[in-house]
Design a protein around this nucleic acid. Structure first.
Length: 447
DNA sequence: TCTGGGGTCCTAGGACCC
DNA sequence: TCTGGGGTCCTAGGACCC
């Protein structure tokens, strides 16, 4: 039996732990640049605020409905997530951390009343970190996700579901007719793996509810849609098609991108931003013990500004040899900007993606075709790269200890007229303190 | 004025091989 | 008249997730 444990409105709930004034109020958390709503409390959902809705469209609710907005504080959410995941791990032999607020637990071999166990776990998470959660139990990942959906809906709309399904719901314990009824009351788009496009197409074929989907022909779905949808169907019928992955490999690609706080028109500004993103990406790369073989760089104008001339630069640079060295990665990224930049555009966003990742330490021997190296000097390559690794490790240590960018590549901070620019940096006017990860920002308790 | 930032997997089609 | 029959690898694009 699998469980899907997930925090309710994670980011809002994290903020509420430290700001009691946010409890019971409509609250949204804003993306970087305070641009869009990326998390909503139930009260904010009730006001009609949609996921990813631009802030300027709902801003008027501040005055009329008491809506409260805070800037995203990912450092806080990440730390709260680790604490929550550690508690969950105590309750099951295997855990797959699926996202910042969700994990699958595998209770295989655990005996006793799993619903009672999960209620106990919820209480522990609430007591020890202060986050509200819901748990779905089912024989497959898709059914556990569905059960979680029911648990949440039953909590949010007490009238429309049996009371005992709220907060912790085990579809394995629901008899067939009652399950069919739940399926019939749920739209296909609410099922994990069925997004907007597929549900529209399913609706066209007359399949609107989960019940109708569950009774569809598997071969037909595979033919008309994809093997992915066929798996989803089988999982709804209790046939497991997606294994629990409790030992994830490192990422296959690493992306750092941002929208700018205000439009950037100069090449210096783009070089600076792209250098910064490449440096951040390189840090992540070393953290997972990988090297990259290619760097993708893009910068683009805003598609929302219809009157602006549009330009999108995007290029992938293969590297001579895989590297995790910030200097090489920043150099490649900045070089790409110099080749692709066009003056006269208002750029709104940029990013750096590291690709074709491989484990560090797998060093491919090189065939030297240039021939300016003495015979026998092949040995200098590993020696050199080990010095690089030491330098990078020292840089990471210094930056961890003395703050991000204590040591950095010069192009990360363009200098014009002697002043540091960073014109691209994000706006975050409403960010709360990083209560759990910075000594200087710890909450105070008045006695 | 103002529109997020990460990721994964699958498929189709082209280049190329024998 | 009539033009094989397998493969692999790579890439771009589309779908999905939170």
């Amino acid at each position: 039996m699998l469980a899907l444990v997930d925090a309710n409105n994670m980011y809002v709930s994290c903020e509420r732990v430290f700001s009691p004034r946010l409890r019971g109020r409509p609250v949204v958390v804003l993306s970087s640049n305070d641009g869009a709503c990326i998390a909503r409390s139930n009260e904010a959902k009730a006001l009609g605020v949609k996921m990813a809705q631009p802030w300027f469209q709902v801003r008027h609710l501040e005055k009329t409905q008491g809506l409260i907005a805070v800037s995203a504080n990912f450092e806080l959410y990440g730390d709260m997530s680790s604490r929550m995941m550690a508690i969950e791990a105590r309750y099951a032999p295997r855990q797959e951390i699926y996202s910042i607020d969700e994990s699958f637990l595998d209770f295989d071999g655990v005996r006793g009343d799993l619903v009672a166990l999960c209620r106990d776990m919820r209480a522990a998470i609430w007591r020890e970190v202060g986050l509200p959660t819901c748990v779905g139990l089912g024989p497959t990942k898709t059914l556990a996700k569905f059960a979680n959906h029911v648990a949440k809906e039953a909590e949010r709309k007490p009238g429309s579901y049996p009371r005992h399904l709220a907060q912790v719901c085990n579809v394995g314990a629901i008899d067939r007719p009652a399950l069919e009824e739940l399926f019939a009351a749920t739209e296909v788009g609410d099922i994990w793996g069925i997004g907007r496009r597929i549900s529209a197409k399913l609706n066209e074929s007359g399949i609107r509810t989960v019940r109708e989907l569950a009774h569809s022909d598997a071969a037909m779905l595979r033919k008309q849609f994809s093997v992915v949808l066929e798996k989803t169907l089988l999982e709804l019928r209790g046939v497991s098609c997606m294994a629990l992955d409790d030992q994830p490999e490192g990422r296959q690609q690493i992306l750092v991108s941002r929208s700018f706080g205000k439009a950037v028109t100069s090449i210096d500004g783009i070089v600076e931003a792209v250098s910064e993103f490449a440096a951040r990406a390189a840090e992540k790369l070393r953290q997972q013990g990988s090297m990259a073989s290619a760097v993708n760089v893009f910068f683009t104008t805003s598609p929302f500004r219809k009157n602006d001339r549009q330009h999108e630069a995007n290029v992938t640079i293969p590297l001579v040899r895989p590297t995790a060295d910030t200097r090489h990665l920043v150099g490649a990224a900045a070089g790409a900007v110099h080749r692709l930049f066009r003056p006269g555009f208002s750029y709104a966003k940029a990013g750096v993606m590291l690709m074709d990742l491989q484990a560090a330490g797998v060093q491919q021997a090189e065939l030297d075709l240039v021939g300016d190296v003495e015979p026998g000097s092949v040995d200098t390559v590993p020696a050199k790269s080990s010095n690089q690794a030491k330098l990078m490790a020292a840089m990471d240590t210094l930056n961890r200890r003395f703050g991000r960018d204590a040591v950095r590549i010069a192009s990360q901070t363009a200098v014009s007229n002697g002043a540091e620019t960073r014109s691209w940096s994000v706006r975050q006017e409403r960010r709360t303190p990083r209560y759990t990860t910075r000594w200087a920002e710890m909450p105070w308790v008045k006695c």
